[in-house]
Write a protein that binds this DNA or RNA. Sequence first.
DNA 1: GCTCGTATGTCAAAATACTGACATGAAAGA
DNA 2: TCTTTCATGTCAGTATTTTGACATACGAGC
Lengths: 153, 153
Amino acid sequence: MKDRNPVPPPHPARDVTEHVGYRLKRSAAALRGAMDKALREHGLTVPQYACLELLDEQPGLSNAELARGAFVTRQSMNVVLRGLQEAGLVARPSTTDHGRALPAHLTEEGRDRLDAARNAVYAIERQMIDAIPPRRLTALLADLDRMTEALGG
Amino acid sequence: MKDRNPVPPPHPARDVTEHVGYRLKRSAAALRGAMDKALREHGLTVPQYACLELLDEQPGLSNAELARGAFVTRQSMNVVLRGLQEAGLVARPSTTDHGRALPAHLTEEGRDRLDAARNAVYAIERQMIDAIPPRRLTALLADLDRMTEALGG
DNA sequence: GCTCGTATGTCAAAATACTGACATGAAAGA
DNA sequence: TCTTTCATGTCAGTATTTTGACATACGAGC
């Protein structure tokens, strides 16, 4: 019978639910759930919304760039992009004169749909912000960034 | 031609990458990626690891309880649980004398595998913790909790 | 010119997760 | 007791995401 190998926890915690990773995942899951629900009324999924938002800010992004911006693989974003094109929200040329990357951009309808959905998403963002002391918002963002960078994200 | 409907952002931000939701998702994605990579060497997926960790701490949890603890649906956890049972890491009675919930528990091999994988996961946890000022760790956890609760998570 | 390395778009297949649905078991209330 | 309500386990189907692979296109270095 082998002995168990008790690993000292990274910080004082009585159980896994007190670990940073667990809390982070829980918050992300709550956010995802709230966004799923809110965006469903606008006929959009979370990756679709993320794609529209990125394109609104940076028209001409390629599929690979959108994938990195939305934290999914190129292949997943490709599927998302096809759906958005089929829905008439995004347009993309079939060829390009330089390189392989095909620059995507929003259509008029895409912008309208994004504007409508943004209200719902911003309401969620506000819920999160209002839940924490205003003084700590910048610190929170900075800490999230530091963790992300430490993980090579 | 319709006018666009500019929605005032929830807090001063030049672009979406400065929104709380975006940062949160990015951190969670980085964590997920790091855990995926680390756990692959131990032949485990993230949901599988989460399941083992929950069962180590609370033996006898049912499928539904594990699902809630790992932030997935009952159906998804059912697949995970089947895989772990097939791999001999988890055991579950086929019947029970009271109720429908079937209490799961780790096997000897399951505990060994968990102990091995925990080292890798704790190293990641430590990377995150070391990246932020020690004084802010408690505040960070509290803020994450407040956001989660605000979102009904 | 040529090769090597890197980045991109896309196809195919598998893995993973979800929604919808149904039957079972237990607790609470009329 | 009977009914209602709720939680659970599980099946089926669908949707989503990932891994693996390949061809293409550019730039750096020789």
